[in-house]
Design a protein around this nucleic acid. Structure first.
Lengths: 237, 237
DNA sequence: CGATCGTTTGATCGAGCTCAAGTACTGTGG
DNA sequence: CCACAGTACTTGAGCTCGATCAAACGATCG
């Protein structure tokens, strides 16, 4: 039931039958998806305490991501049926699973966003750095976002490439460019984001409070949602 | 509480406070994310009966996708607190929400996959067509995947571009190429995928039962997951 | 029958990938 | 402390693919 894994061991594999969920008891793991030619897309890092494989056990019958230990790990595996009955018995577990899935979904959407909508390599990398640091920020230090941010340790440029959808070499070139522009300060250990706000403003098309969805057919005020105009009827477009 | 919306009206907007969930009672809606310069990434189509905005109400405090009516719609909005207490009172609602979120997550991962891992425009479009038809297949006709598939109606090439991360013109060119190769049969109304399997084999790097994650440091059999070697200990890397 | 929207095709250009070579840093063992 | 090996980083040159710009063509609808 409990396993000790070495770095780079596979915890679960995309495409395989989703017969278990895995509780990551210690260590860290990369959540990624891969193509048959070896290219990787790293979605996020999972830390101790997280449950892996939720989406597959609940939904389709196969895992849709691969999880690979990035450091020595301890995991506990739980059979699908057991986990489902636990969730039934303890509503708190369901609630926790809901929040986990909601976060996973947001993370996947952010990845898709920057891959599709960032027009340049610099944009992709900037978004990746900002998304990554925000997602892995311990605690709720979202308010002091304008302060310098340390990028988590031991992420190679190759991994950065797999996060942002760029080649190793391009990652290197963009990092050099950001350094020249004073936006980041790469040490051997950390990449310090000197001015996250400026980085975001210059290169990112991130979800803002006022996003750019066209309101072509909508004559009404763009900021209104149905909840705010429950009595009104939308003018037919 | 209930609203009638015209086509192209916005149901909920990414970045806005997640104060409500929305039950789509009739019509269809596009789930998308946008950049400030107007580029779009369409993740999927939501149909009548679906609950929209789940991920935001449960997780972070802001919607992370935009939902836009693609046909006239009826939606019912439900305040966040009300929905949360309903979920608490009726475990079935929680279970349903879990499955919805699991599917949404899988869908977002597929989008990120094809954006990052498909090496060519043809690959991106082929994956998009296949993902889209599978996700929107009514019922469980997954078994007869080798039969021709009709692509859902009224998806313009521009929308196909926003689904696959390509420009309109490139979508057109790739469609022409697929037609020349006998892979698809585009009518004015439908695109018929003549041979989905061949299309997938030629152009897609989709999650197969034997994906290409490197097992560099793992000496053990690649197909083994921790659940299958619960008594064994991984050899320290 | 004209207007509008969607599709088709061509020409050009540039960003980023690939290939290739070279450099810096880390850790290990003597 | 130094030599060595391995890994990661850096930089350059060339080239390919898809975006962009531009211009018709076709269908549908009022």
């Amino acid at each position: 039931m409990s396993s000790a894994l070495a770095a780079n061991d596979i915890i679960l594999r995309e495409g395989y039958p989703a017969d278990h969920v895995f509780l990551l008891c210690s260590g860290q793991a990369k959540v990624l998806t891969s193509s048959s030619d070896g290219r990787l897309l790293i979605l996020r890092t999972a830390y101790a305490g997280e449950i892996l494989g939720l989406e597959a056990v609940l939904g389709t019958s196969a895992y849709c991501v691969t999880t690979q230990a990035s450091s020595p790990c301890t995991v506990i595996s739980l059979a699908r049926e057991d986990f489902l009955s636990i969730m039934e018995a303890y509503p708190q577990v369901s609630q926790s699973a809901l929040q986990t899935l909601a976060r996973d979904f947001s993370c996947a959407v952010l990845a898709a966003r920057r891959l599709a909508l960032s027009p340049s390599a610099a944009g992709k990398l900037a978004c990746a750095l900002l998304d990554w640091t925000q997602a892995h920020q311990p605690g709720e230090s979202r308010a002091q976002e304008h302060l310098p941010i340390r990028f988590p340790a031991h992420v190679t440029q190759e991994e950065l490439g797999s996060i942002s959808g760029l080649s190793r070499e391009t990652v290197c070139r963009v990092i050099a460019q950001f350094r020249r522009e004073g936006l980041i300060h790469p040490n051997r250990r950390y990449i310090t984001l000197v001015d996250p706000d400026r980085l975001e403003g210059l290169y990112c098309e991130r979800p803002h409070p006022t996003p750019g969805v066209p309101d072509s057919a909508t004559g009404s005020a763009p900021s209104q949602t149905p909840s705010e105009r429950s009595s009104q009827q939308a003018s037919g477009g």
